[in-house]
Design a protein around this nucleic acid. Structure first.
Lengths: 361, 361
DNA sequence: CTGAAAGCGCTTACAG
DNA sequence: CTGAAAGCGCTTACAG
C-alpha cells in the first residue's frame, strides 16, 4: 500500500534525472519531457511511424525502456475509437475444443498487447445477432475470432463487418477470403478414415453425422462417402444417422445403428464425443471393441485416449489453428511481422490409428 | 458500410428532436443536451449517485433508454483509472475444470457490463509474478478471479492487493477473508467417499494424492484419512502415492499401487483425470472394475461418465462457484444487488455413486 | 441537488 | 522530420 500523495511525485517528475523514481506509471508526457520532444513524436514512435529521425527514435526508445513505459491501451483505445481487445465468439457443444482453441489463440496473441475476451453465445436465441453486435459496439473490439458453427453464419459476419470490426472465421471449408479464414482439410482426412475401414474389410459401416447447420457436418459426410466410393462401398440411408456432436446424441445414434439386423461392423462418428457414446452403447450390448465393432472418431480430444480401447480418430490441429487465427487478425495491426498473410492453405488434420479398429469377425 | 461524413451528423444532433437519428453512438453529451442538464448530472445518473432529483433521474433515464445509450467503458475506465475488465487467472492442469469455471464466471458477469479476460499462466516460471502484475497494471483490471492452485499463492495475492486490484480466490479451504474467497467442502465429502469404500467392505485401499503445493491435495488427503479412521481403517504409506492431477500421473500411480502384493481392492484418486489413468492400468492388467477393483474419482468432469463403468466420484459445484466468485467481485461495484456478500459458507460438493465401486471379491 | 473547469493518456487533423 | 491545438467520452475536485 505505497500510495504517496501526488505532489512529491510531481516534483520527482520535474527533476528529469529522478524520473525513474516515479511511483506512478510513466505516461507519454513523461517520455516526451525526458526526451525533449513533443508527445506527438513519442506517439509516432509508439505507432511505428516512418517519419521519425532514426536517432530520435533510438533516444525515445531507450527512455521508454528505462522507465518500463507501456502505452495505456485504454487511452489509446479512446483516441483510436477502437479497443485492443479481441473477442472469441463461440457456441460450441464441445468444451474441450473450445479450451484448446482458446489456448491456441492466446499463444498467437502473446506479447502483442491484445487481450482475449471470451464471449459464449446461443446461436439459436432470437436476439443472438443483436447481442453480439452490442458486444462489439460496447467494447469497440479490434477484432473477433469465430468458432464453428457460429463462424458459418454469413449474416453474422455481415453485421460484424458493418461495425468495422475485423474477424477471422475458423471452419472446415473455404467460406470467405483467405485473410478472413482458417480452415482444415476435414474432407480429405475423413475420406482417408473411410478407406481405412474398407481396407480392414468392413462393408457394413454406420455413419453418425454432425448436426445440420454445421459446415463440418457436410464436409465430413461428403469426405466419408467419397472415401467409401473410392473403394466401391455405399452407405445405405438406414446406416446414416444425425447426431448433435454431444455424448448423449452419440448414445442414441448408436442405439439406432446397433439395433439393426444385420448390425454394422464399424461406425464412424463425426466427433469424439459421439464416439464415446458409441462405446457406451457397445458395452451395454456386450459388444467388444474392436472385435465386434470398430469405431472411429474425430477431433482427438483427450477423451479419445481415456476410452478403452484407445480411439482411432482424426487429430484436428486445434492449437495451431487458433494460433493462426490470432496471427491473421494481428497481421493488419503491425503488431506482428507480416509473414504469409494471404494464404488459406488448410491446416492438415491427421488420421490417428489406435486400437478401436480391426478387421470384422 | 453506411459511413456518412460528419457534418450531416452534427446537424442532426443540433436539432434536438432528430437526435434518435444519430448514426454514431450517443455520448454523454448527447444525453446532457437532450435532457437540458450538464454532463456531470448525467454522469451522476450513470453512477447511481443519490444526489439527483428523482424527477431529473427519470427524465435522463428515459432519454438514455430511447437512444440506447450505453456509457463507453473505455472512456469511463480512463477517467476512473480502472477498467471494466475482470481477469481469470489460472494455471490448472485440468482443462475441463477451467472451461466450466469460466462458464460459471461468465454467468455471474452477465449483464453487468464487465467483460472477462482470460489469462493462463505458468506458476513455475520465474517471471510468473511479475508477468501477472504487468497484466493487471497494463489493463488496470477491476478485479481478478484466481483458480487453484494459483489461488493458494499468498505472495501473488499480496502483489494483487498492492495494485489496488480486487480479487476472489477459489479454493478448497478458508485461506482469506470471506469476501475474497469461494470454497467447497472437499474435506467433508472426501471423508464420505472413504466411509463408502469401507462400508462396502474394503480395507486395503490405495490413495492417489494431488500434487504437493495444491491446497486441495491436503484437504482431500486429510478428509480421506479421517473418513477411514472413523471406520477404524488406516492407509499404510506404501498405499499412498503422489499424483499430478493429470491422466499420465494417474497411470503411473496406478501402476505403482497395483503392482503391490497383495493388491489394494480399491483406489481413491484425487481427481477424475487420475481415476481415468487407473482405469487404463486396470484394463491393461486384465482387472475388472468394480469386480477386481473399485475406483473413486473427484470432480465429476464429463470424462467420469464416458468411462466404463461410469465412475463413482465427487461432484464439485464448479459452475456455481464460478458464478459466486463473479458476484462477489461485483458486489462492491454497485453492479449487483448486495445479497449475502460477506459469507464464506462452503459450496457443498456431492458424492455421486455410480458403477465403479462394489464390495471386494 | 446541480454545474463549469480541468484532467485521465492517448491520437487526429493541420501546419510548418 | 516535428509540434501546438483540439478532441476521444467520461470523471474528479471544487464551488455554489
Amino acid at each position: 500500500m505505497t500510495r504517496s500523495s501526488s505532489s512529491p511525485l510531481r516534483k520527482a517528475g520535474a527533476k528529469l534525472g529522478d524520473a525513474t523514481a516515479l511511483k506512478r506509471r510513466a505516461t507519454i508526457n513523461d517520455i516526451a519531457r525526458l526526451a525533449n520532444v513533443s508527445k506527438k513524436t513519442v506517439s509516432r514512435v509508439i505507432n511505428q511511424s516512418p517519419f521519425v529521425k532514426e536517432e530520435t527514435r533510438q533516444r525515445i526508445g531507450e527512455i521508454m525502456q528505462e522507465l518500463g513505459y507501456v502505452p495505456d491501451p485504454q487511452a489509446r483505445g479512446l483516441a483510436f475509437r477502437r479497443s485492443f481487445l479481441i473477442g472469441l465468439i463461440y457456441d460450441n457443444p464441445n468444451a474441450q475444443m473450445v479450451v484448446n482453441m482458446q489456448q491456441g489463440v492466446l499463444d498467437g496473441l502473446r506479447g502483442s498487447g491484445f487481450e482475449l475476451v471470451v464471449h459464449p453465445c446461443n446461436r439459436l436465441d432470437k436476439s443472438f445477432m443483436q447481442e453480439v453486435g452490442a458486444f462489439i459496439d460496447r467494447q469497440k473490439l479490434y477484432g473477433v475470432i469465430l468458432l464453428p458453427p457460429v463462424s458459418e453464419n454469413d449474416k453474422l459476419v455481415e453485421l460484424i463487418e458493418e461495425r468495422g470490426c475485423r474477424y477471422v472465421r475458423i471452419g472446415s471449408a473455404v467460406l470467405d477470403e483467405p485473410e478472413n479464414i482458417v480452415i482444415s482439410n476435414d474432407r480429405l482426412v475423413t475420406a482417408e478414415a473411410a478407406r481405412h475401414l474398407v481396407d480392414l474389410g468392413h462393408t457394413r459401416i454406420g455413419f453418425i453425422a454432425g448436426p445440420p447447420g454445421f459446415r463440418s457436418r457436410k464436409e465430413r459426410e461428403a469426405g466419408f462417402i467419397e472415401g467409401l466410393r473410392a473403394r466401391g462401398v455405399e452407405v445405405p440411408a438406414a446406416l446414416r444417422v444425425d447426431g448433435a456432436y454431444t455424448y448423449e446424441s452419440g448414445v442414441s445414434a448408436a442405439q439406432q445403428l446397433l439395433s439393426q439386423n444385420p448390425r454394422p461392423t464399424a461406425i464412424f462418428a463425426s466427433n469424439d464425443e459421439m464416439a464415446a457414446g458409441v462405446y457406451h452403447v457397445a458395452r451395454q450390448m456386450g459388444l467388444s471393441i474392436p472385435k465386434d465393432l470398430s469405431v472411429v472418431g474425430f477431433d482427438d480430444t483427450p477423451v479419445s485416449r481415456r476410452l478403452w480401447p484407445p480411439l482411432t480418430t482424426v487429430r484436428w490441429p486445434i492449437l495451431e489453428m487458433g494460433q493462426a487465427a490470432a496471427e491473421k487478425l494481428l497481421r493488419a495491426s503491425n503488431a506482428v511481422a507480416p509473414t504469409n498473410g494471404g494464404e488459406a492453405r488448410p491446416f492438415p488434420a491427421h488420421f490417428v490409428v489406435r486400437d478401436s479398429t480391426a478387421p470384422p469377425l
